[in-house]
């Protein structure tokens, strides 16, 4: 079994996707990306990820809907919402729908690393 954790990044902005992929690959993860909720679901169906990082405002299936669908299907992987929405309602809604963590943009890449580590540790238990 490979000890590299697999991460799926879901974001409709290519620059963010690339930047995150760059950073997380550097941190030693196996990184995969999807540009919207629908593609993410397809990927998750065919492969198992240890953690999913998702934007909220995306075309077709928003991050909220994505979390809802994933949690309804019983996906184990923790979901971290990474969004430029920083209103209280957005945070509440995200956790309500089953998100495991929430970060707002602008985000610190280092903080993100730490949170990912923590989420992975918790989900392994």
């Amino acid at each position: 079994m490979s000890d590299k954790a697999k991460i799926l990044i879901v974001d409709d902005e290519p620059l963010i996707r690339d930047a995150l992929a760059f950073k997380l690959t550097k941190d030693g993860y196996d990184v995969d990306t999807a540009e919207d909720g629908e593609k993410a679901i397809q990927k998750i169906e065919s492969e198992e990820y240890h953690i999913i990082i998702s934007d909220i405002m995306m075309p077709f299936i928003s991050g909220f809907e994505l979390v809802k669908i994933l949690k309804e299907r019983g996906t184990d992987a923790p979901v971290l919402m990474l969004t430029s929405l920083n209103s209280e309602t957005a945070v509440l809604k995200a956790f309500d729908l089953g998100a495991d963590d929430f970060m707002t943009k602008p985000f610190s890449p280092n903080e993100l690393s730490v949170r990912i580590k923590k989420l992975l540790k918790n989900s392994k238990k």
């Binding site: 620059l15 930047a19 943009k105 602008p106 985000f107 610190s108 890449p109 280092n110």
Partner: peptide, 10 residues
């Protein structure tokens, strides 16, 4: 980039 990143990257 700046709009989206924070911390040291900033």
């Amino acid at each position: 980039y700046h709009r989206n990143l924070g911390g040291e990257a900033f």
